[in-house]
Nucleic acid binder design. Structure first.
Lengths: 209, 209
DNA sequence: CAATCAATATACTTGTGAGTAAGTTATATA
DNA sequence: TATATAACTTACTCACAAGTATATTGATTG
């Protein structure tokens, strides 16, 4: 509650109220994505989500809209993180393989996070036609970014491959899967898993020496 | 309809009636798994499934039981096929890597088939506690079979790896993913995809030369 | 031939959960 | 001070889909 650096007045300023709304919105979104991940989109009811925050269902509508909008906001968050990871990797130095590996590690980590996990676990059949289209478009951008990184690595000779598209699917598939089985309270951290998996995968991409 | 080799009598024998029941049961199961895969378990209603066969919902209950039992039968079918593939691979000759590759190709193919695809797309949150437990057990057997094949390959030196468990997850993840994106009417056959993906993956497992 | 069973249908019950209408209180604004 | 608006609530509606009660028909069997 008391997040000010000093002198926490009980009378909120205007800016504080705005950010208060943002923080509440955020909390609702978090609760929703956790519920979706834990019990599945269909089985998690908005009443459950509301109850977990000691609020009522209409409050969710107040902050985020209907159930599909909530889900779309969740997956958009996850996909934004992935996009940022791709952009960051593009800006890095090193060989194409270095940049690709860097992206893949981050990609896997995000997929073990709340919003990334939600991206993986959300199927198009859960969405309306419009929602599914938007979802597909966003995912497609990530796919293209990954292919782009692969092509750059092919270009500078740091990897060899015949089929960029299938390679992208293979890498993505392997690194998406932890979203299904990884438990944050398990023995291995997300970073450790990511690093090991990327090592396993890229050893196969590197030219034979 | 007329599946006899010769002299098709319109009066079915007792054996024919039994097999008729089996064939109908099979048709219902097929229709169900297709609907589940196409629209998702929750969105696919048993009324839809029934309508697609021009029958009524109680007929599904007559042949297969309730919706969860239908789903469990579907995933059991898929997992049985995977188990057979593992057993077959174990009986093959060649190096451990040969047997592993053979299994992985078959594994990927099955996952692009109706029942295999259903295994991948079915989450535990869709099942009752009991159903989820059975599902987990069956999946676990496949996982163990894959680890076993990996260990044999490590044993005879045809592959090198430090973490068998994570390698199994990585391979499985990559080869599960086509269940999400592959369309049977697409440009690449399931066999072609499997072969290419397994090549991509195993090139990284083989000892560096 | 009576009784039972298999295979189907129609027409219902029922639970669940998304979404909404309408009210309440507090605060900001004109 | 009146009024609009934000931030909620309780208490509904309503649709959908799982599952069931019951009836019908035709074949099987004792």
């Amino acid at each position: 509650m008391n997040r000010g650096l000093s002198d926490p007045s009980p009378f909120p300023s205007r800016a504080e109220k705005l950010s208060e709304r943002e923080r509440k919105r955020e909390a609702v979104l978090r609760a929703a994505v956790r519920a979706f991940n834990a019990r599945g989109f269909h089985s998690a009811s908005l009443d459950d989500v509301a109850a977990s925050l000691h609020i009522s269902k209409p409050t969710i509508y107040h902050y985020l809209g209907n159930k599909e909008q909530v889900l779309l906001e969740c997956v958009t968050r996850g996909l934004e993180k992935l996009q940022e990871a791709a952009d960051a990797a593009e800006r890095e130095s090193g060989t194409g393989l270095d940049r690709l590996r860097s992206f893949l590690r981050r990609y896997a980590e995000i997929n073990m996070d709340d919003f990334g996990r939600c991206v993986i676990r959300t199927g198009e059949e859960m969405l309306s036609a419009d929602g599914a289209r938007r979802f597909r478009e966003l995912k497609s951008r990530i796919d293209l970014a990954m292919r782009s990184l692969i092509e750059e690595a092919v270009g500078d000779g740091s990897i060899e491959t015949t089929d960029v598209k299938l390679l992208a699917f293979t890498l993505a598939g392997a690194l998406n899967w932890p979203a299904r089985w990884h438990r944050p309270d398990g023995p291995l951290t997300a970073e450790a898993i990511s690093a090991t998996m990327v090592d396993l995968l890229t050893a196969g991409i590197a030219p034979r020496r």
